[in-house]
Amino acid sequence: MGSLKQIAFTRLRLITLLGIMVTLIVVLSFASPVFLTRSNFINIVVHSSVLAILAIGLTFVILTGGLDLSVGSVVAFAGLLGVLALRSTGNVVLALFVSVASGTAMGIVNGLLIGYLQINAFIGTIATLAIYRGATLTITGGHTIPVRDETYNFLGQQGVLGIPVIIPVIAILYIVFHFVLRRTVFGRSVYALGGNHAAARVSGIRVRLTTLLVYALSGGLAGLCSIYVVGRLQSLQPWAGQGAEFETIVAVVLGGINIAGGEGDLMESLIGVAIIAIILNAMHLLPAIDPFFQSIAKGGIIIVVLAIYERLKAYGVT
């Protein structure tokens, strides 16, 4: 298959994704008079912020053929360490640094387990999920820690010109990491690793280091996320981020990232996140949807989208 044709196929998948998203938007704008308002659009983005940031890290991890189920627990534990730093020093800059650095360190632990000790990613990150969550619960005793700090409050609650701070942050992250994935040696290594580990090793790619780096990135972004979560909730919630890993994986796969690795694009992950966010917003907005029916609707729509992918794949669209 020629490269031009491949590009056309890639665009076809992207067009399909965009088509689904636009269809959802059009239908929902008729279904709810408030769906297409500016403030609801901001709500959609704000409500999916955690998902959007975690999806960046998980896209890198899944592209290498890996999996990181610990990200939700990292959000809670990194947030806690940041809050403890704030409480003991009063230095908010240090607290923010501690959150990101500790998240990265937790990701490095995952990377060492998977890249160097060759532990299966699913099992390894389930274990660290339990450890990080358990550590958070042990330290907090299961209690919420209120956080009254201007900087956290600004990052989680405030906006500039009516736009919440988190929105430009997400935009910048996606632009930067799209560039990293598409235009750097590291990005190409990520794709190569997911395509074929043995081939990647033979071609000189440092498999273990690349694995370590993608998990460190995933942890670091979860640490970044924790700052926003603490600010938005004005407290450290010991159960923060619980289940976020599964929703993020669904969004990433929905966006077209091959769960086996090697195929996909960060912008497609973003559209996957947007589709999930729109569906969740619709569930909240449409008054007469039976709350028990929501799970069926959510699951049904996800299956429909994935079924479309499978049909596209069957016809050679990767």
Partner: peptide, 9 residues
Amino acid sequence: AVSLVYAGG
């Protein structure tokens, strides 16, 4: 699929 949701709504 979305129309079903819409109709329910």
